[in-house]
């Protein structure tokens, strides 16, 4: 059934689709090396006629107007700290609920899982008001803390801890280990693939969030890369596709590289956590 003609047909389709996914990124790169005059007038040049680095030097030295590196480090900081909080708090809670004698266990677990059905739109206004009342708008706190009540992680880890063999735990207990030691030395390593997947999911969702950081930050130095670039797009970069694309390329390339390197574990994680 798998004859040669069919194979060629399938590969051709795959290539055409790949062009759809890659061409926009390539076009972004091409434009970022063009002068604005060429970008606007010369049309379909996939390779710039006049190759210029001016857009990059401008975007990188933009000073207080476009602190690209500040935005990048804000995004990384917020993403990493937010992810760490979720990992610590979720592994503890999931382990407690799955393996320990926590009072009202069923009720708590039901409540946490139930919260998965609550759309995020219901909390963002009151959260904004709350942070406003405590004077915490435009700080790292407002960019990190709202992501910390992540029931998705508790749910994933709970399943993994439930499936973990009791004998290993009991052996550690017989050796005189207390609950904390069993948790750290036995349970956590067993859940490593799930923890890794949860980390990637959480980081991506914090890093890519748009509306929340847009609403809660106002000073240029507190912007994340996502919101900073969006504001540039409507501000001083609006008339210069070359500069805008250079800025975009600077923000995109590192993430794409990390993503391409990390996608194997990501995909593996999706399988192992049983999201299907």
């Amino acid at each position: 059934m798998r004859n040669k003609g069919f194979k060629i047909f399938i590969v051709t389709i795959a290539v055409v689709i790949a062009i759809f996914f890659i061409a926009p990124l390539f076009w972004m790169m091409a434009t970022s090396f063009k002068t604005d005059q060429e970008a606007f007038t010369s049309g379909l040049k996939w390779i710039p006629e006049v190759f210029t680095l001016e857009n990059y030097t401008y975007s990188l030295s933009g000073g207080s107007d476009t602190p690209v590196f500040t935005w990048m480090s804000n995004s990384l900081f917020v993403g990493i700290i937010g992810t760490l909080i979720v990992l610590i708090v979720d592994t503890l809670a999931a382990y407690g609920l799955a393996r320990l004698d926590v009072p009202f266990k069923k009720l708590l677990f039901g409540m946490f899982i139930g919260s998965l059905t609550i759309p995020w739109v219901i909390t963002f206004l009151p959260l904004y008001m709350g942070f406003n009342q405590f004077g915490l708008l435009d700080t790292y706190a407002v960019l990190i803390l709202p992501y910390s009540a992540n029931a998705f992680g508790v749910f994933l880890l709970y399943q993994s801890f439930k499936a973990f063999p009791k004998e290993l735990e009991e052996a550690a207990h017989l050796d005189g280990a207390n609950k904390w030691q069993v948790f750290i030395k036995v349970a956590l390593p067993s859940a490593r693939p799930v923890i890794w997947t949860l980390a990637i999911f959480t980081f991506m969702s914090i890093y890519n969030d748009f509306l929340w950081p847009l609403l809660t930050t106002s000073s240029p130095d507190m912007r994340t890369i996502t919101t900073g670039i969006a504001i540039m797009q409507q501000g001083s970069f609006v008339s210069s596709p070359g500069r805008l694309m250079a800025l975009t390329a600077i923000a995109t390339i590192p993430v794409i590289l990390i993503f391409v390197m990390g996608q194997r574990s990501f995909i593996k994680g999706v399988t192992q956590t049983g999201i299907k």
């Binding site: 909080i85 610590i88 708090v89 979720d90 503890l92 809670a93 382990y95 407690g96 609920l97 320990l100 004698d101 926590v102 009072p103 708590l108 409540m111 946490f112 919260s115 609550i118 219901i122 909390t123 206004l125 009151p126 959260l127 008001m129 709350g130 803390l145 709202p146 910390s148 009540a149 029931a151 508790v154 609950k179 948790f183």
Partner: peptide, 26 residues
């Protein structure tokens, strides 16, 4: 039971402050 509860406490705290409270406040 008290030590076991400590495992769940941090999450419960964040859950209350950043999910339940905002819903009620909303």
């Amino acid at each position: 039971k008290a030590t076991s509860s400590l495992f769940v406490l941090p999450y419960l705290l964040l859950f209350t402050v950043f999910l339940i409270a905002p819903i009620v406040y909303g």
